[in-house]
Design a protein around this nucleic acid. Sequence first.
DNA 1: AAGGTGACTAACA
DNA 2: ATGTTAGCCACCT
Length: 107
Amino acid sequence: MNFYQEVYKLVAKVPKGKVATYGQIAALISTPRAAQVVGFALRALPQNSEVPWQRVINSQGCISIQNPRWPQSEQARLLKREGIKVAFSHNVYRVDLDKYLYSFRAR
DNA sequence: AAGGTGACTAACA
DNA sequence: ATGTTAGCCACCT
């Protein structure tokens, strides 16, 4: 199973109402340095994927997506729909990590 | 088939 | 404190 597959598997474990960061996922698979690759993997997902990619944000708690198919505003809406509060200021969407960050259980 | 191209992040200057 | 850089992987020419 390659890196991308691992990413999808882990992202799928993030429960509704919680979020995870790219670095967090990367650290679980290999090294924390692969954070960017996590983003690459999500970018490669088909539009109709079942993977809850919207629950993955950057270490600042900000929506970091760069994909014309899914504008940031759309990701923000998806998260709000799941009960997550998304603040919008300075033209940036942000989530309170202290509140919503998901902690993966060991193993 | 080799190389460019991305949803990041922590470490440095 | 703000800007730059290295490390990382699969997919598409």
